[in-house]
Amino acid sequence: MKRPLTALMAAALVACSAQSAFGERLISSLSTHQVLVGSNFTGTELVLFGSIERDAATATRRGGYDIVVSVIGPRETMVVRRKDRVVGIWTNAQSYTFDGAPSYLAVLSNKPLDAIAPAATLRRLEIGFGSVALSQAASALGLQPPGEFREALFRLRKERGLYREDPAAVTFLTPTLFRASIVIPPESEIGNYEVDVKLFADGVSIARTSSALEIVKVGLEQFIVSAARDHSFLYGLATTMMGLMTGWLASIVFRRD
């Protein structure tokens, strides 16, 4: 895979640049735009580099710059269930359906979010665990999903590394050059991921840029998944034949008479 990498990066830089009304321009580039999931996939880490471009007219920011990178995976319908004791047995009782919760969510910044911008600003920009929309149905009615189910969703996804809030994942190399590391755990859903970078100064969002990355299954992985879904009868037949072959081989290899 020898691509003209420099040309690609240059194109990405141009595509991702955005002029803000305040004079700063935000430019970012991902180390790769495609993550391939094969049967040996155990997760990976991407790097996002970015630069804050200023021109002569740009005012100096006394508080310095802050960066928040949000990575949002494909939205899925998720059911969170709570176990309760029913006639002495612990079983799933209540449940809540989130229709449109991100399967992956990383909120990466250079310092804690509450030190970057006021809560109201973060909520308006849908930044952070407290602000991201999880359910269309609930949002349409202007409601929030019930607190304990919401907390459970975040906790369960965090345990698997699929949700992450890291106030130290963005580091400034120079006052205007930064990098962020994006961890993709092995269980990440395949699909398109939005990468949204926002620049803050003095608690105000002054520039943003976004790009995308795609996670795809390849090789045997892809073959099995699509076969199981699109040719399910043949797939079942093939799996059974595989079983019979294995059994037959074993009876020949270990034949004692």
Binding site: M78, V79, W90, G100, A152
Partner: peptide, 20 residues
């Protein structure tokens, strides 16, 4: 044991399909 002892994590999550 799984049915009778209070589990450490009461909540479970399942993805049932692509969301909107």
């Amino acid at each position: 044991l799984d049915l009778l002892v209070e589990p450490r994590e009461l909540f479970s999550l399942r993805i049932v399909g692509a969301g909107g």
